[in-house]
């Protein structure tokens, strides 16, 4: 009966689609974390109480972050077509989805990074200054390690949002489970495919959440 129900399912295609979803999520997550931390640090350091207090730079960064956060993802993909084409050489496939995924979620993660950094005890930063620490030392030995649990839970939240984005990107031909569910499931009226893809996506989300919580708890010695 079960095989009957899932008769339209090609297991190889499903594995391929799942792999693509993982691939897009992880690659874009790496990019998002790098750019998000850079932007988040910039927001934090140039803020009013920051080490590099700079009203102008802070405003510019905040505007960029807010603008890109405001654009709906599906529109962002379309807007980025020329850029993607130039960068990747195509607008189809998992790699072509990466620029949009990263640009779409890095600003979001940047805000989470900023919040995490603001939570770092001012006294600890002051103590590092009193020891004669350089700004670089303060960033890498104080700010980042002391905010690590929050940075990691931010990564978890972002990763889950990214899984959603990859499914959306699928609709314009990026590959992955979204693509598979839409073109093979929805458009051919094979509901079972849509259903299986959904279940797999939910499982992936659970896995990310579980791993993220586990790491975050392990790191937190407070």
């Amino acid at each position: 009966m079960l095989t009957d129900l899932l008769s339209n399912l090609d297991i190889n295609e499903l594995v391929e689609a799942t792999y693509e979803t993982f691939y897009m999520t992880l690659m874009s997550l790496i990019g998002t974390v790098i750019f998000g931390i850079l932007l988040g640090l910039l927001l934090y350091l140039t803020s009013r109480e920051g080490i590099w207090k700079n009203k102008f730079l802070n405003m510019i960064t905040a505007i960029i972050v807010n603008v890109f956060r405001a654009i709906p993802f599906i529109i962002l993909i379309l807007l980025l077509f020329p850029f993607t084409d130039f960068l990747i050489g195509t607008i189809r496939g998992p790699n072509a989805a990466l620029p949009a995924l990263i640009i779409g979620s890095a600003p979001f993660y940047a805000r989470l990074v900023e919040i995490a950094l603001k939570e770092v005890d001012k006294g600890v930063i002051e103590a590092a200054k009193a020891m004669g620490a350089k700004t670089r030392t303060i960033i890498f030995r104080v700010l980042l390690p002391e905010s690590m649990p929050a940075l990691v839970s931010g990564i978890t939240v972002t990763a889950i949002a990214l899984i959603g984005y990859t499914a959306m990107a699928g609709v314009i031909g990026a590959g992955g489970l979204g693509d598979y569910a839409y073109f093979f499931g929805f458009q051919r009226r094979d509901v079972d495919i849509v259903f299986v893809c959904t279940v797999i996506i939910v499982i992936i989300v659970f896995i990310f959440q579980f791993i993220g919580d586990f790491i975050s708890n392990k790191l937190d010695k407070r």
Partner: peptide
Amino acid sequence: FQHFNLLWS
């Protein structure tokens, strides 16, 4: 410092 200001990590 009064509040010690140690790195919890």
